[in-house]
Amino acid sequence: MTTRAIEIWVGIFVVAGFVALFVLSMQVSNLSSYQGEKGFDITARFDDVSGLKVRSMVTMAGVRIGRVTAIEFDDQALQAVVTMKIDGQHRTLPRDSSANIYTAGLLGEKYIGLEAGGDEASLGPGDQIQLTQDALVLEKLLGQFISRMIDEPAK
């Protein structure tokens, strides 16, 4: 094997490796949908965000339009403050849209679903969503259900 052939093969190998890494980044992962810089941040307050994580999806009409970028706790209001980054091209979401925390499937991941309101004005950077609905927590639901079952026969 000549030095030249070896060098060519090594070149092919290294390029193939980087192409593979590129394919993994662009085709397999969410990098292509990041394009993060152009998006804008909005916030929403919830009483309970159990199960929601940074990087959870934000959808509207079932289509992903952004991601959760931060979840913080407000000591004064005793609420969770969720910051989400909405992709840059969605500039016309009505200002009075509401945010709900949903579960994908029965036990699946939590995500935020925005529901459009009727306002003319649209959400911009730094705006806060006023209407929110908390995560459904299975234990709480079960608890309520069971206590009702116990209460009812007692009547």
Binding site: A16, G17, A20, V23, L24, V28
Partner: peptide, 16 residues
């Protein structure tokens, strides 16, 4: 050290 991550990436990409 250089070859291993490249090989692993090729492995994953081909696997996908």
């Amino acid at each position: 050290f250089i070859a291993m991550p490249l090989l692993a990436s090729i492995f994953s990409a081909v696997g996908v």
